[in-house]
């Protein structure tokens, strides 16, 4: 992402952001409510088109094409190409309610990756087992707890084998006792996969467990960034100190 600015009306939510995530890198993004964390992920996923700047993922520009060394604006088709390398897990799960856990995972595999029904089924069963839902394959979202739904959503994104996974406060809509099971799944994933990850979270311990780099974000700007040891345990910026204090006292 380079010089990415996002405005809604006259309000600038993300301001000239320069952010790059290396292959395999796990980046945690923290910051107060309304600071623009979700917006950054939505931009990276291609759900929003930035007001200015460009975004490149795994060699493809999201909203531009390169021609004779110049960047020209491009449309939805180009965005779809770039989105193949990205997966996103949402705060509200957003499972398809009329499909079983299994179908939620297999349908994109069949439709997007053109896997055969059998291959899709095998891959989905494997992933759902890995997130601990082997016995719930034929349940519909309404029959699953929030934690289980979120694990299906993680499996659904993983199945497409993106290069980067985005997690937007994936536990903040959950009852407290269900938070752990979801964080454990992501923690395992972070430690075993070669995927890059961008994780927006308020779970500080979790962030310091998995992140190679932590970014403190406020008012559309990066306030501070560095290793978890620095940003989370020994922050330099007063804004970060204040934010962490507020979170710990909650």
């Amino acid at each position: 992402m380079r010089d990415v600015t996002m405005r809604y009306g006259s309000r600038t939510v993300v301001d000239s952001l320069l952010l790059s995530v290396k292959p395999r890198e796990k980046v945690a993004i923290i910051g107060p409510s309304g600071s623009g964390k979700t917006t950054i992920l939505r931009l990276a996923m291609g759900l929003e088109r930035p007001s200015e700047g460009w975004i490149r993922i795994d060699g493809n520009y999201l909203w531009h094409v390169e021609r004779n060394g110049a960047l020209l604006p491009a449309g939805e088709q180009q965005a779809r190409r770039a989105r193949r390398a990205v997966g996103m897990v949402f705060q509200q799960f957003n499972l398809f309610p009329h499909m079983t856990a299994m179908q939620n995972v297999t349908e994109p595999l069949v439709h997007v990756l053109r896997l055969s029904k059998k291959d899709a089924h095998d891959r989905a069963a494997d992933l759902l087992t890995r997130v601990g839902l082997a016995t719930h394959l034929d349940h519909r979202p309404a029959q699953l707890s929030g934690g289980q739904q979120q694990r299906v959503a993680i499996a659904r994104s993983l199945a497409l084998r993106p290069k980067v996974m985005l997690f937007d406060e994936v536990t903040s809509a959950l009852d407290p006792e269900l938070v752990g099971e979801v964080l454990n799944v992501i923690r395992d994933l972070a430690h075993t996969t070669s995927m890059a990850m961008m994780i927006v979270t308020h779970e500080i311990t979790f962030a310091s467990d998995i992140a190679d780099r932590v970014i403190m974000f406020d008012h559309g700007h990066v306030v501070e960034e560095g290793t978890p040891d620095v940003v989370l345990r020994n922050p330099q910026s007063p804004r970060t100190k204040q934010f962490l204090k507020a979170i710990l006292e909650r």
């Binding site: 996923m45 193949r84 990205v86 957003n94 997007v112 497409l160």
Partner: peptide, 13 residues
């Protein structure tokens, strides 16, 4: 819900 469409776009459907 809008989230349905967004999830579907994120899955590249």
């Amino acid at each position: 819900p809008k989230g349905q469409t967004e999830a579907a776009i994120a899955l590249n459907l």
